[in-house]
Amino acid sequence: MDSLLKLLDKNARLSDAQLAAMLGRSEAEVTEQLAALEKSGVIRAYKALIDWDKTDREYVTAIIELRVTPRKDLGFEAIAETVAGFEEVESVYLMSGGYDLSVHVTGRTFQEVAMFVSRRLATLDSVVSTATHFVLRRYKDSGVVYQGQRKDERGVF
């Protein structure tokens, strides 16, 4: 199971037949295992990693440090779920250290993201403070290098 996930983690476009070949299993077996992994929520989604800077889409990302007051019975769950509910929010992590929630927000412009933070996040009841950091350049994301093209410089021997 573990090796199947490792392959998919690197490349989700391999067909079941290709995955089966690489793992030495039958295609039916892989199909079944994938269905089980999807059903149990181990596999959450399959999506592409896109370098939006190379497209004409206006796209900015910010990382917001959120300090919040945890609720007595729910801890951070309630506020985290509220924050995660916004479409503008790409990811939400509960953090150790100097702040509580790390929130990745995307929008068309700096202005749009800043407005979202001040209007939607900062105003939430349990939010104590926000600090917004805009991403200026993406060097590597989800294990994939974004800058430059690696050219195959090998000769033949």
Partner: peptide, 10 residues
């Protein structure tokens, strides 16, 4: 090994 299996199968 993974690549080997993939290409042999293919």
């Amino acid at each position: 090994d993974g690549r080997r299996r993939l290409i042999v199968d293919g």
